[in-house]
Design a protein around this nucleic acid. Structure first.
Length: 426
RNA sequence: GGAGAGGUGGCUGAGCGGUCUAAAGCGGCGGUCUUGAAAACCGUUGGAGCGCGAGUCCCCGGGGGUUCGAAUCCCUCCCUCUCCGCCA
């Protein structure tokens, strides 16, 4: 959520900055709402002060044994007037927050301008795509030939956009997860977390998936009359919400968490996109990095978090590039995002395996997550960041395709061999 | 699933319809004393919003209700703990 002050006092500038991402802010509606809010709130508080004053006088009169009848008469119609104002105030505040929760974050000044993903800016490129002496197969052909990847049986069990991994590939996926977690915990200073995969609506509101993107989520409704749960679309949701409503002591910062979870996405609106293979699934594994830092540190943290995710690709010796997302391609909550894209020989292009973002105080304002500033002793909003470190399914795809041999065998990246009993080929 | 007990400021814990803008203790911070520290003593110490301002309003698990007035009474939901049952 944006700072309400930006939506009250600095509307024009806010509108201009949101235009960078192609979002049109309804200035007329917001300023009309704000004007009424101010007058109704002032009047409501004035009436409440009057009521409190009278009630106190009644209490004192009774204590002294006097008849409070005349005092009671004075407040006879106060309750009615007050409740009219209070009701209106709640309506206005509700309307304001309904609007505010659907306004995206302001892009950082360094975000490139652009109209779509073609305008993203390549920042750097690491590794060189391998020159194949034979036509490289895609991961579906490779996995099927190994008898270790089965989309048909997954479709029978569940439906489209699911996969069953067997034997060597199930083990390879487990090895990838283990490798990533070990790297981030032992070398990058992240604390590993195991978290719930079902979360409540409040958590999703905190990180920004709700209220605007409910259709992208899988929801569990009306379980024995209890509150609804949602399957997490990313570990970002439970991990970042760890600090919801907290005031963290400054000495504990930065908080750096890593967590492996399955992720569940409805992929509504991506019909016909990446229908083949493991690229876009309803359920996939991901290792997620999350940092909670002071505002002064957050852009340095974005660079280091991105570098931490890149290290995975470097250790696996996979060619990749880093792109800075342009305004139009930026996610709802992000102020700035770097995507990491890995080379896929079968597609002859780079595909996203990680998205590293600084949300500044957009998420933490929604969840009221703060730290105590030692200089002032006052609570201030934290900045939150996260990035995939990495998407496991797509990493597995990249390994299969980049490490394939002419005979269909898959070489095991050196970094993963300790996790697969030292074997060199699948 | 059944029965019961609870949720109050960083922590412990009192308050059970009217100066509660919540007692007390612990902890934190500042000070006195001290070569320094401890102890003792004194003071101080939650958060959010509105208003140009004097100021004002809200927060005792969440929401709703009763009342001139709610931490306190009623309804409802959530959470924690104990016992029983079931279960990995």
């Amino acid at each position: 959520m944006l700072d309400p002050h930006c939506l009250r006092t600095d509307l024009d500038k806010t509108m201009q900055r949101l235009a960078v991402r192609g979002y049109t802010l309804d200035v007329t509606l917001l300023s009309a709402l704000e004007t009424e809010r101010k007058s109704v709130q002032v009047e409501t508080e004035r009436l409440r002060a009057e009521r409190n004053h009278h009630s106190k006088a009644i209490g004192i009169a009774k204590a002294q044994g006097k008849d409070p009848a005349s005092l009671l008469a004075a407040v006879a119609d106060l309750g009615e007037r007050l409740s009219v104002n209070e009701t209106r105030l709640v309506e206005i505040q509700q309307a304001f927050s309904d609007l505010a929760l659907r306004i995206p974050n302001l892009p950082h000044a360094s975000v490139p301008l652009g109209r779509d993903e073609k305008d993203n800016v390549e920042v750097r490129r690491e590794g060189r795509p391998r020159a194949f002496a034979f036509p490289p197969k895609d991961h579906v052909a490779l996995g099927t030939a190994l008898d270790a990847m089965d989309f048909d049986v997954a479709a029978k069990i569940s439906g489209s956009r699911f996969v069953v991994l067997k034997g060597r590939l199930a083990q390879l996926q487990r090895a990838i997860i283990q490798f990533m977690l070990d790297l981030h915990t032992t070398e990058h200073g992240y604390t590993e977390l195991y978290v719930p995969y079902l979360v409540n609506a409040e958590s999703l509101r905190g990180t920004g998936q709700l209220p605007k993107f409910e259709e992208d989520l899988f929801a569990l409704r009306h379980i024995e009359g209890r509150a609804d749960y949602y399957l997490i679309p990313t570990a970002e949701v439970p991990v970042t919400n760890l600090v919801r409503g907290e005031i963290v002591e400054a000495v504990r910062l930065p908080l750096k968490y890593v967590s492996h979870t399955p992720c569940f996405r409805s992929e509504a609106g991506s019909y016909g996109k990446d229908t083949r293979g493991m690229i876009r699934q309803h359920q996939f594994e991901k290792v997620e990095l999350v940092q909670l830092v002071t505002p002064q540190q957050s852009y340095a943290a974005l660079e280091s978090l991105t570098a931490n995710a890149e290290t995975v690709l470097q250790r696996l010796d996979l060619p990749y590039r880093v792109v800075a997302l342009c305004g139009a391609d930026l996610g709802f909550s992000a102020a700035k995002t770097y995507d990491l894209e890995v080379w896929l020989p079968s597609q002859g292009c780079y595909r996203e395996v990680s998205s590293c973002s600084n949300f500044e105080d957009f998420q933490t304002r929604r969840m009221v997550a703060r730290f105590r500033n030692p200089a002032t002793g006052k609570p201030e909003l934290l900045h939150s960041l996260n990035g995939s470190g990495l998407a496991v399914g797509r990493t597995l795809v990249a390994i299969l395709e980049n490490y394939q041999e002419h005979d269909g065998r898959i070489r095991v990246p050196t970094a993963l061999q300790p996790y697969l009993r030292g074997i060199e080929h699948l």
